[in-house]
Computed example of a mutant assay.
Amino acid sequence: MISALRHFRKPFRLLSFLGLTALLAACQVGVPGSGPTGPRVSGQTINVAMLLPYGSASAGDDLVARSLENAARLALTDVPDIQVNLTVYNTAANASQAAAVAQQAVSEGADVILGPLRSDAAAAVGVAVARSNINVLSFSNNTEIAGGNVFVLGHTFQNTATRMMSYSAAQGRNRVLILHARNLAGEVAREAVERAAVANGATITGRVSYEFSQNGVVAALPTVMSTVRSTDTNALMMTGDAAGALPLFAQLLPENGLDTEATRVMGLSRWDVPPQTLELSGLQEGWFALPDPSAAAQFNARYEAANGTPAHILAAIGYDAMRAVAETAATQGRLGVAELTASSGFAGGTEYSA
């Protein structure tokens, strides 16, 4: 949905994200039905392997892993019609180890693999089990790795860009300048916005890239401002997040003359993570995409009640993945591409609506 940042106590203006089933379908690259058919479910029991970054050198990875696992186990309480045997395998956030434990999981009878978290590990896992007839539902949001036996479940740039551009064009903000980092993620984000603009009748007035550094941000400011003024730009799409260049641009663009009313600021990332990002002056009145706050609050409350700790922001992906797999197995009897991407499938644990 789209959230307008006016004053934080005022209600959000909302536009819903795509649901999980649509996300699976959109990210399965290749000829429909060309991926693994998946094993038939044995009676009403499925063996699920979950590949998580436990054992990484980063303490943050253990936190994410625990939250994803807890959320998946929470999902199992909502699918009583099928027995799920869940086995967790530690990847240490390492692609080689992820590939090795994926092969181990298949040899131990896994019907489907959930995870791993990052795209390099997910790609390695896909290759490692490519001949096994087992699908891999990774938690990555990098569609470059999707195809064959690999799905991505994270919120993709394309998914978000499509929602953002649809809303923006409908509001008359249809002359868009793209501001992106000069790296792989920035280029993927730029391409997603360009495709979404074409699909929604918007015009890209320019593309400004910047070196991913403080000096790079400062150096890009004159180009941003001159392009806005010379092209009648009425919307600025910033692809960076709060851990990157977003806070610096949010501070410096208004200081360099950007009128955020005349040129609506938009983002592909979550501006509410961390919450302090919402206080940045250059983002006021801007638009960004996020799941339904009320549904997310319900999920977070359930998670905390069950586990005694708050859910990580990615936890809902673990819940949705397990619910989707369990319900698909219970109703379809198979975990193949056709069943996982069925249009009548699961709509998401945090109730994103299509």
Rank of each mutant, 00 (worst) to 15 (best):
G333E: 08
G172I: 01
Y89F: 13
A130R: 05
A219V: 04
N183D: 15
A189G: 08
V337I: 12
R182F: 11
A124R: 00
A250T: 02
V88I: 10
T260R: 14
Y89Q: 05
G336A: 06
A65M: 10
V127R: 13
A243Y: 01
G318Y: 03
S213P: 03
P116N: 04
Q158Y: 07
Q158K: 02
A170L: 12
A110F: 09
A330R: 01
L268V: 03
S281V: 00
G19F: 04
A4S: 13
L74H: 08
G216I: 09
I204D: 10
V265E: 07
N142A: 10
V224A: 13
F212A: 06
Y303K: 05
N200S: 15
R229Q: 15
A170W: 08
E261M: 13
D111T: 05
D62W: 01
Y352Q: 12
A250C: 08
V64F: 05
L114V: 09
K10I: 01
V325Q: 02
W287G: 02
G148Q: 10
D320W: 09
E279N: 12
N142W: 00
A243Q: 04
M50D: 09
Y210I: 09
G43F: 00
D111K: 09
G109W: 02
G244M: 12
S132W: 11
G206E: 06
Q276F: 12
T37C: 02
A72P: 06
A93C: 06
T239D: 12
L20Y: 10
A301Q: 15
V265N: 06
I134S: 02
N135K: 03
S107N: 13
E255P: 03
P291D: 10
P53F: 07
G109Q: 12
Y319F: 11
N215Q: 15
Y54I: 02
S226T: 13
G349P: 10
L23C: 03
Y167E: 07
Y210Q: 10
T277W: 09
A242Q: 04
L74I: 11
Q28T: 07
G109Y: 02
A121W: 01
G43S: 14
N135F: 01
S42P: 01
Y352M: 13
R6W: 06
T309D: 12
V176G: 14
P222C: 13
C27Q: 13
E108R: 08
W271E: 10
V101K: 15
F8T: 01
L314R: 06
Q97T: 15
A169T: 15
T77L: 15
A128N: 10
L51Q: 04
M164H: 02
